[in-house]
Design a protein around this nucleic acid. Sequence first.
DNA 1: GTCCCTTTGTGAACCCATGCACAAAGTGGG
DNA 2: CCCACTTTGTGCATGGGTTCACAAAGGGAC
Lengths: 260, 260
Amino acid sequence: MTVASPRHPSRPGRAGRLSPLELRHVIRRPSQPRERGIPEATVARLPLYLRALNGMAERGLATVSSEDLAAAAGVNSAKLRKDLSHLGSYGTRGVGYDVEYLIYQISRELGLTQDWAVAIVGVGNLGRALANYGGFVSRGFRVAALLDADPEVVGDHIAGLNVEHIDELEAVIGQRGVSIVVLATPAAAAQQVADRVVAAGVTSILNFAPVVLSVPEGVDIRKVDLSIELQILAFHEQRKTDRMTGGPAMADEWPEAVDL
Amino acid sequence: MTVASPRHPSRPGRAGRLSPLELRHVIRRPSQPRERGIPEATVARLPLYLRALNGMAERGLATVSSEDLAAAAGVNSAKLRKDLSHLGSYGTRGVGYDVEYLIYQISRELGLTQDWAVAIVGVGNLGRALANYGGFVSRGFRVAALLDADPEVVGDHIAGLNVEHIDELEAVIGQRGVSIVVLATPAAAAQQVADRVVAAGVTSILNFAPVVLSVPEGVDIRKVDLSIELQILAFHEQRKTDRMTGGPAMADEWPEAVDL
DNA sequence: GTCCCTTTGTGAACCCATGCACAAAGTGGG
DNA sequence: CCCACTTTGTGCATGGGTTCACAAAGGGAC
Ligand SMILES: NC(=O)c1ccc[n+]([C@@H]2O[C@H](COP(=O)([O-])OP(=O)(O)OC[C@H]3O[C@@H](n4cnc5c(N)ncnc54)[C@H](O)[C@@H]3O)[C@@H](O)[C@H]2O)c1
Ligand SMILES: NC(=O)c1ccc[n+]([C@@H]2O[C@H](COP(=O)([O-])OP(=O)(O)OC[C@H]3O[C@@H](n4cnc5c(N)ncnc54)[C@H](O)[C@@H]3O)[C@@H](O)[C@H]2O)c1
């Protein structure tokens, strides 16, 4: 979807009296230029709220209470209100939040009112799946390039894009204004690719390879690691079954190793 | 790799004098049955340490200091030591940690000494990539089933497995001892599948669909959401470019909507 | 205009996580 | 055996995040 530009719920079309609420918005801005310090934990939840709100907008809901929105996003309602309060006072007491308006404000805060050119490096099993993924484009992200080192893969057409050779990396990043790179190469190649990507001026990387990337200050890395998630699940699963059977059989003991 | 059963670094082969260090391990167990409360943040980092340790073991390192291991895992060394201290006193002052022994202890704590049967539900773009992923099997996880609703997909062979019909879900889970389910269906189907999976007795789900699943108490859900990660990156990216250009152009203003 | 009801926005208490800094413990050399 | 050096394990202070609970704000009925 493209982000529309909704007016504030009670904002008059063009001229007209300003209610105290609107006045507050207008007055506050120059004097208090929007608190520039949104907690990281809040940032991580905004996309969740946004998704819930989009669902509500599709179902035609005009306003939503913090209670309902929190339920839809799976969080505590006080937390939701505090999160939103970091963006500004966009709710109306006694009523709730205007869905469209809040979508707009969150989108703007997250930077989704512009669109971001993304390059996917490493077009193997995972890279292909990502390239074919629709949910990508839907939120301001546009896959601008697919890059791979394997001559067998280069030249393939995937989701309407031509896979280009990794040698073109710097040129592609520069010419197409790529600002986010998705890394889906094998672990062994990831650091080396990351270095080139950073040297080319990119400061945001989403890493799927199971390695700890080292990058200079100011470059943001986020990682997605299937294997870590499974291990965390396994830990809790073990706990649960242990509890059933009354603690681990020989918790702190190690099996006797064959001794030769 | 399979987890070996290494002895403690200085533990004698069979009989022999016990050093004070070893004695501590042996004595402590009955009296203090291993603190059963590892912080969630620590659990989430253990897989990271494990990966770094495996790399070191492959390179033949016998021991490692908290400083070096922390660097390899990309964390603060005090944090690493505190994390490990939750598992027990497995280090040796003045020396460091025995690599093999620590691998074993962390693996045991995470429950990787047993192997876990995993079922992947939804064999589309993403499900296929996951099924073909090697890094899966390597750490105690075994893909035991692939399930899909689409008759076109059912019967396909992927990574040596036959794709089965979703109707077989309960039977497969029961018969093959599946304890972790990976959800890779479209968002619309995810909740419904989750309900069935939970009803069948599974209490650990890794969800790739962009929805908030609601499940009963006691069921663990972890989610992987590409779109959220990108939005978080976009937020920071916007901050960075804003800072360059001296703040957002008209931060709190909304574009004038066409007014009819 | 006044009253009642709903819901926001936030002060404050609490809890968990991080990181510094150091005593205690262990190693190796002489 | 003693001493110098290394490195762990942890007490403590600090900070961030979560949640409760409530005053203040707004809406709607009459
Ligand atoms: N497939 C999954 O489900 C999955 C899950 C979790 C993590 N991962 C990780 O994601 C990464 C990709 O996984 P995959 O299954 O797609 O692997 P893959 O081997 O199928 O694909 C990797 C691709 O990267 C390309 N490549 C190699 N070196 C390159 C370089 N220097 N520059 C550009 N491209 C290069 C290869 O040609 C190949 O096409 C791996 O690090 C893997 O561990 C994959
Ligand atoms: N492909 C990606 O890179 C990517 C990235 C992030 C998130 N996701 C999410 O992962 C999920 C899967 O993505 P995809 O690209 O593989 O989609 P896809 O459409 O290619 O595959 C979905 C598969 O699920 C099957 N399915 C549908 N309903 C089912 C049901 N009730 N029971 C069992 N199987 C059912 C379909 O037959 C299909 O094979 C989606 O929710 C998507 O939003 C995908």
